[in-house]
């Protein structure tokens, strides 16, 4: 089951640039939450703060509190422990080219020292089925490299890889922006299926996508969270003038 996320007074910097300002937000468990906003508004930085990937950049800095379930991730746990519970899918598919499809999916468990073959086989099959990729790859799981798949398949492989460690939260940073419409719709169907079991946070530039998959939507602008509300509210009667301007295409 997924867990909710609570964010209090979150501030983030890259070097001297203040990229996130006083973000306060509660993301409910077992639902999909979309984050929209123009390029450079801080939404990617925000999701990277939720699994402490932000600090892998040497010039980055974070202040504030983020609670994933009961865990205060900046005080109660090490980054590696958080990242095992909060999975992430990136904008560009990044399968491991030197590994087979099977090893790509199993990599998260293997690197953490889990080597029970029977369970691994089961997890790989289950994750690939969850990512709707099983039928396309089941015949050459160990023969083909992860890089030999098409772009859309690679992204679903990356989703399977993230799901294999059974995370509580799945962060997706523009997961479909490098994909064609058919692959995009597959990813969206997937999000729809997965949100019963996981809490999903998805960053997107595509507002129709946000409307299709997410229960709640947040609008970011210049490092601030302008509005966070149920998706239908955001897209039909937003409270803030800036949200309305962005959604109707007057800027951004």
């Amino acid at each position: 089951m997924g867990v909710g996320i609570e964010v209090k007074n979150l501030n983030a910097w890259y070097g001297q640039t203040h990229t996130l300002r006083d973000i306060n937000l509660t993301i409910p468990a077992n639902s999909a939450t979309a984050l929209i906003g123009p390029s450079g508004c801080g939404k990617s930085t925000f999701v990277r703060c939720l699994n402490r990937m932000h600090e892998t950049n040497p010039s980055a800095r974070v202040e504030g509190m983020v609670k994933v379930g009961d865990i205060d991730i900046y005080n109660d746990a090490a980054p590696v422990e958080i990242r095992r519970r909060v999975g992430m899918v990136f904008q560009r598919p990044n399968p491991f080219p030197t590994m087979s499809i099977y090893d790509n999916v199993a990599s998260g468990l293997k690197l953490n020292g889990f080597h029970n073959r029977k369970v691994l086989d089961e997890v790989v099959e289950r994750s690939l089925k969850q990512a709707a990729l099983w039928n396309e790859v089941k015949d050459d799981l160990k023969k083909k490299s992860g890089a030999s798949l098409s772009g859309g398949q690679q992204q679903r492989l990356c989703i399977a890889r993230a799901l294999a460690v059974d995370p509580e939260v799945l962060l997706m940073d523009e997961p479909a922006s490098a994909l064609d419409p058919a692959s995009t719709s597959k990813i969206e169907d997937l999000i729809f299926e997965l949100k019963d079991e996981y809490s999903i946070v998805i960053v997107t530039h595509n507002m129709q996508q946000a409307a299709r998959v997410a229960e709640n939507t947040g609008f970011f602008l210049n490092g601030q969270l302008v509005e966070f509300a149920p998706t239908s509210t955001i897209f039909t009667k937003p409270h803030d003038k800036r949200t309305e301007d962005y959604i109707t295409g007057r800027f951004g």
């Binding site: 699994n51 990937m53 892998t56 590696v80 422990e81 990242r83 990044n94 399968p95 890889r161 460690v165």
Partner: peptide, 26 residues
Amino acid sequence: PVSQKEGVLALGATRWEMIRIAVLRN
């Protein structure tokens, strides 16, 4: 590519595991 390193880190790898899997292997 940085994306390879981030991919491994996002799975909960330590720095050494990241170097072994993402950097040396590639």
